[in-house]
Structure formats: C-alpha cells, structure tokens
Design a protein around this nucleic acid. Structure first.
Lengths: 190, 190, 190, 190
DNA sequence: CATGAATGAGTTTTCATTCAT
DNA sequence: GATGAATGAAAACTCATTCAT
C-alpha cells in the first residue's frame, strides 16, 4: 500500500503519457467507448492522476479535437491563395503526419462533420476560381465535386494513408488525376 | 399512468412505432449514445414495453444493421455482371430509399467498415473488367479509385442524397462524370 | 388476434391445470426461481388467466404449502396415541403419495423448518413414551434421536422415496431397523 | 454522503466486511433472496464499492461455495483410509468451525445436492469395508444407511451443531451410537 | 506528485401485476 | 372465460469523478 509520488516520477512526463495514450484509445474506440480506466491503465497510473492533469474526460477530448482543428486552420492561413492541388497536398501531408489526431478530428469527434463542411467550402472556393483550367469540370456541379472530393480524401486517408499503404504524395497525385487531370483522356483523344 | 392496457392500444402499432423511433435515434446518435429511455420516450411508452417487442437494445440494433446489409447483398445478387454505372446507381437508389437504415449501416454500425470494404472489392472487380473502356483510368491504381469512389459515395449520400438536395439519378450521373466520363473533356479537347 | 374465451375452454379445467403446473414447477425450482410466465407457459394460457384463478403468486404458493401442512396435521389427528413405527409409516406413505407437494412443503417453503420442528416434537413425545421398549435408546438424548430421525426421513424421502427407488414400506422398515431394532444386534449378542 | 475516500477507510477491511456480511446474508436468505443492496447496507457502503472488490454477486457466491467444497475435499484427502467414526467426526468438526459457510455449501448452493451425494458415496465406501464390524448393519441396505446418515448429519448440523446446542464431539458420539454402537443394547441384552 | 478508497447518477433488464377488449 | 398490451418497482452493474492520505 505504497502511496504518494513514485520514484523518478515527473509530472510533465505523466501528463504527456496520459495524453498519448488517450489519443491512441480515443482514435481507435471513439469518445464514448473510451473509458478513463482504459487510458490510465495504458499509462500505468491511477485514475486520480488523470484528473491531476486534465479537467475531465470531455475537456481532454475537446482539447484534442481543437488541436486538430487549429492545425488545420493554420495550414490555410497565410497565403490566401491556394490551388486545389496545394490544398489536397497540404491536407494529406498533415493527415499523414498526425494520423491519430486526424482519426479523432475527422472521424470520432461529434463535430467532425463541421470540419468537413468547412473543408468542402474551401474546396468550392478554390475550384470556383480554377474551374476554367480543368475541362473535366465543365458542366459539373462544383458543390458535388467538392463533397465528392472530401469523401475521397477522408476515405483514402483512413484506408490507404494512415495505414501507410500509400504516401501523401502518391495519393495527392492520384486524386488530382481522378478529379482534374485530363492528360490521359486528352492524349487519347488527340 | 396506470398499469395495464392502454385505450386503443395495439401491439403491432407499438412495435412499429418503437422500431421507427429506434431507427431515427440510432441513426442520429449511434448505438452507445442511444438509450432505451430515449427510444421509449419518443414512442411514449415505458421501458418494459420495449422488452415486450425486442429482446434487447443490442439485438434490435443488430437486426437493423443486418437488414441493411441483407438488402445490400440482395441488390447485387441476381445478374452477376454489372457495369460500374449500374453498381453506383443501384447503391444510390437503395440509400435514397432507406436513408435512416443507411445511416445506421454505413456510419453507425461497428462493422460498417466491413460493409464498405466489401463494396470497395466489388468496385475493384467491376472496374478491372471495364478498365479498357475508360481512358481516364489509364495509369491509375484501381484500388485507389475504388476506395476514392467509396468515399465519394458515402459522403454524397450523407450530405446531398439523404438530405434530399440531390436525387440518386443526379448523383449517379455526376459521379460517373467525375470518375469515368470523358465526354466533356474530350469534346473540349477536340 | 383472436381474443376471448377459447372453444371448449372451461374454468375449472384451466384452474386445475395451472395448479398442477405450478406444483410441478414450484417443487422443482422453488418459489423465487419460479416465474408466473413459467407456470402459464406450461399450462398454455396467458398471464391474466393466472390471476383469474389465483390472487397472486404468493397466495398460490401459500395455499399449496398450507395444503401440505394441513394434510400432515390430519394424519396425526384422530387417535392421539401413536407408536413411533406408525408415525414413520404414516409420514412416508403420505410423502410417497404426494411427492410434489411434499417437496414444496418440506424443502421449498420458507417455513418448512417449522414443519420439521413440529414433527421433531412429535417424535420426541412418542419416543418419550416408548423409550423403555427400545434398549438402543438407553443413554441417548431423545432430542438428538428425534432430530436425527427427522433428517433421515427427509433425506430418504427426497432421494429414495420420491424417486421411487424404494417404497414407503421398505423405508419404514429400514428406518425402524436403524433406529430401534435390536433384533440383529441382540441375536448376534446372545 | 460525499464522494471519495472515507476518513480512516481501508480497502482490505471493507472487502472483508463485505465478505462477512455477504456470508451472513447468503447463508440466511439464499442466493436469490440476497440483494447486493442488502449486503452493502449491512456493510455500510454503497453498491459500487461492492464491485470494487467482487466481480459480481454470482462470482462471490460461487467463490464461497467453492471454498466450502474445497475445504471439504481437503478433509478427506490425505490418508485414504478412514473409519466411519472418523468421517463423521471430521465432518462435524469442520461444519462446527464454519457454520455459515456450511449453511451456504450444504443448504443454499444450487449444487449442494451434489456435495451430499458425494458424501453419501464416501459413507457407502467406508461402510462397505467396515460392515462386518457392526452387527447392527446386518441385513440392512448400506445405501439406505448412508443416505439416512447424511440426512441425520445435515439436520443435526443445522439444528444442534450450528446453533451451538451440541458440540461436534457430542454429536459424533451420539450418531455413532444411533447407527453403529451396540454397547447399550448389548449391555442390556447380556 | 500520486495513490487508495469511495460514491452519485445513470443504464439495461426482469417480473409480478393490471387494464381494456 | 380469456387474451393482448402495458406498466411500477426493483435488480445488477458501470463509469466519471472526488475525497483523504
């Protein structure tokens, strides 16, 4: 029945460990299926320790979700002007680098749908500007294309990117080919 | 409220009402966040009434999920040979007709990922056969296309189809254009 | 959804059937483990029918228990004077003829212990009068013998009598031999 | 009552208290009639505390039952050869020392009948070997005697031993006298 | 800094009983 | 005489959170 501070223990370390384990489990099982007991077991500390560093289960999850969203916002902050190819690339690179946070923010968070709606809007804006450059887009509803693109990105991220079967670069290129690249078609047509 | 039979009460009606409410709530909040108390409140009966008609929360949810999956299997049963356009159409029509069940089977069920994997496989098979017909596919990884298509379908279903902003027919056509139709591009190119 | 009186149905018949099934199930599973739903299922009627004939689960069980106890009382009513052999015989014959009621009254009822205490008292009284006739009893505590006899009777009833491995006659004789019969011993001794 | 640790609280103490109370109540009311709420009320803690120390109501009961059975097995383990007098003595001593566990294992457990059947078999084996030494046994069915003895032991245990009206030593001697001891009879006969 | 011990507030599920037909 | 439909009351169990050490 030893109590009190562990030898070599260190607050910041415990906090980081808890955070890491929380991300792992949240990203896999989702918010409701993740129990505090799971997290602390994985971090090898007790439940009260969790509350030493985080206000509540909810606030931690919210923090993680917001971190994801914040990062996402930062990506598109500086230069207002992006080409769709850059948008796709930047997204995939970010997702590839933060797979677990991405799973949380894109699939597990209750307002992941908002995040996606925002991205879709972004796509729309960009495509609106670029539509003349892609013959393939002619006659197509940009809203539909944007939503479709969002769907493609989220699924490819989940199944091929995060699983490391493909790289962000590869997937960017493939997506661009699918959605906007007439090379093949044009070549053939000629 | 007193015990015993309600005036004008009717078992089949109650069961259907409960089922309907359950589908509504399951499809919105998911399995874990849906409480029996939510369902019975919506159906204006008490908790034991739920157990009069359903074995448990889990078995009801499983039934709904399986109904969705069964329907899906039936779609592709008869003629073994489908063209990708038919596959997409049939999916979207089915989803449009069963929006809530679709939400459950495609987004809320624990094994929705399996359903999608199966669909992706289907896409791959069909595309493998048809690849020569679509110049756009040249040089592209069919697996990636299939996954991407799955993503597009699931997102368009969720955001445009189920919300009745677009019809299954419209979305099928748009998807075909995006993924396989060179018309516009070719026309322009000429 | 047919409702109302069954063709050929008959109140007394239903009541008897319910009673019979109740006895069967109560005797096997005990009061708390027996559900009204078990009883009515066995009798092939619905739950409200049970309440048509019996006030409640408890009152039916109490009735059965009291019937057992009443019968038991009747056995020893008339001639005040019994020999221990007669007491044992009469008990075993009654138990053999009413195996299920016996199981209820002797093993399942909450106050079966009272019944047994009363029987033990009876044994004591009778033995007190007869003790001179049985040399084996000399020096032994009649209370202990009476309790022991009660235990023997209840166990033999449960394991050999009710299972029809032995008859009441056989067991009476054997019990008398064990507890009071010196024949063998004396014969040998001489 | 507030949340969190009680002043001076101690886990092992709480667990033991819960166990003790559980044994008391299980032994009196049986498994089904014992509610967790009874146990925790008796131990002056809340229901979750119960689950802090025990997996479930069932597993606790099973543990207690198995403890009883294990002890019982241990009694007869070492020397394979026992005389019936020793068997009876050892049983009664064990029962006297563990009255509540005995009530659970011998009367309340769902498989107490198995325990008794096993004991009866033991009696049979031992008596088979010793039958020549007891003239009283001549002409009697050893199975009946064994069952009868089991009944005597269980009843005497319940009514005289556990209630501390008689000691294990006294009851052993009395049982031996009743079942196997011709002294008195013989003495008289001579 | 960290733990051991405990609890409030739910959640699913069961069962005897009772109305309306 | 009998059923279909419903419910009140309680049971076991879970989980995020909190106090005392």
């Amino acid at each position: 029945m030893v109590r009190g501070r562990k030898v070599n223990s260190n607050g910041e370390k415990s906090k980081q460990l808890l955070r890491t384990k929380a991300i792992e489990i949240f990203s896999t099982k989702g918010y409701y299926q993740t129990k505090i007991s799971d997290i602390v077991k994985a971090a090898n500390v007790t439940q009260p320790t969790f509350y030493l560093y985080f206000e509540s289960k909810e606030s931690l999850f919210l923090d993680l979700k917001e971190e994801f969203q914040q990062n996402l916002n930062n990506i598109f902050e500086h230069p207002q002007e992006f080409r769709i190819s850059q948008v796709i690339e930047k997204l995939l690179y970010y997702f590839a680098e933060n797979p677990l946070l991405t799973k949380i923010g894109l699939y597990q968070s209750d307002d992941s749908f908002l995040v996606k709606e925002k991205l879709v809007e972004k796509f729309q804006q960009v495509l609106e500007k670029e539509k003349n450059q892609y013959h393939l887009l002619e006659g197509l509803d940009i809203k539909t294309i944007s939503q479709s693109l969002m769907g493609s990105i989220e699924r490819l991220t989940l199944t091929l990117l995060i699983t490391e079967q493909k790289t962000a670069a590869e997937l960017s290129e493939e997506l661009l080919s699918i959605y906007f690249n007439q090379q093949a078609a044009l070549a053939t047509a000629k």
